[in-house]
């Protein structure tokens, strides 16, 4: 359920992905190396990941919002609302909505920062960015939003530019997450904060099992029916399992320089919101 088709990673093993929970979803975590990375459960050349993830999001861009509502039963709106509440955004703030996709967070931020503020909707995928731009313009949100096609690992902004950076359901698609976190840290102003909303590891085993069943048996079928693309949603399920768990991501943020790093589990840990400050 991401918005960027950014790239995955070749991190050191402190950022190794969480282990899958049952035999059906097993994967070889040792596949991460200097030249290879994960694409869902597949091991691929690092250089291929950007184009492969791009393919997924070019394919799902038009049905993205409908699928988000269907797959999450609308709960993704509450997760995003929680993120807005936790952001502490004020009028006049400069906000970067990284991997912003179809602009759900940007829409709210745009209203909250007002005319004096600015929101940059950035996404590596042009299809997602176009869908987001059309949607926000249809809502009459034009005055304080900029659109930038950008890779999270190489953010094209000056240092100390933003008060808030958010990345919602995008980090797991980034090839080098550590590099992306450092890049985000650089563009944040001192006192600024990063909020990472991302799928994570459910807190209870029973929920974990039910979630796995749903992800690997129902989700791809829904993708096939609605978006005519079951494979992309199979990738979605796999990429969620390969994403670092709560504690690992927190440690990654701290390694990148973030302070007062915390996370909050939402819906039993299906999703977690990580928050860290730059001082």
């Amino acid at each position: 359920m991401s918005s960027t088709d950014q790239n995955s990673q070749a991190n050191d093993l402190s950022t190794s992905p969480q282990a899958p929970v049952d035999a059906d979803t097993s994967v070889d975590n040792s596949a991460e190396s200097k030249d290879t990375t994960h694409f869902g459960y597949k091991t691929i050349e690092k250089d291929d990941k950007i184009s492969m993830v791009a393919g997924v999001f070019h394919s799902v861009a038009k049905q993205y919002d409908v699928m988000n509502d269907l797959m999450s039963f609308g709960i993704h709106r509450l997760w995003k609302r929680f993120t807005i509440d936790a952001s502490g955004v004020r009028p006049g703030n400069k906000v970067l909505d990284l991997a912003g996709g179809t602009g759900d967070l940007t829409a709210k931020f745009s209203q909250l920062v007002g005319r004096e503020g600015k929101v940059v909707l950035a996404d590596i995928n042009s299809s997602m960015l176009n869908v987001g731009r059309d949607k926000l313009r249809d809502k009459g949100l034009v005055q304080n939003i900029e659109y930038v096609q950008a890779n999270a690992e190489y953010l094209p902004f000056e240092e100390n530019t933003f008060d808030i950076v958010t990345i919602a359901f995008g980090l797991r698609n980034v090839t080098d997450k550590d590099k992306a976190l450092r890049s985000i840290y650089s563009v944040l102003k001192p006192g600024g904060r990063l909020l990472v909303l991302e799928f994570s590891k459910p807190e209870h085993e029973l929920l974990n099992k039910a979630y796995d069943f749903y992800s690997f048996n129902i989700l791809p079928k829904m993708g096939e029916l609605v978006a005519k693309d079951g494979e992309s949603y199979q990738y979605l399920a796999e990429s969620i399992r390969m994403h670092p768990d709560q504690e690992t991501l927190k440690a990654m943020m701290e390694n990148a320089g973030f302070e007062q790093t915390t996370f909050k589990n939402l819906t039993g840990g299906v999703v977690a919101l990580h928050k860290g400050y730059k001082f």
Partner: peptide
């Protein structure tokens, strides 16, 4: 409750937490 009024529309945004 935060007011957002533009030339085209006015809306109220309701949140559970604000810093100020």
């Amino acid at each position: 409750f935060t007011v957002n009024s533009t030339a085209s529309a006015t809306g109220i945004i309701v949140r559970t937490h604000v810093e100020s």
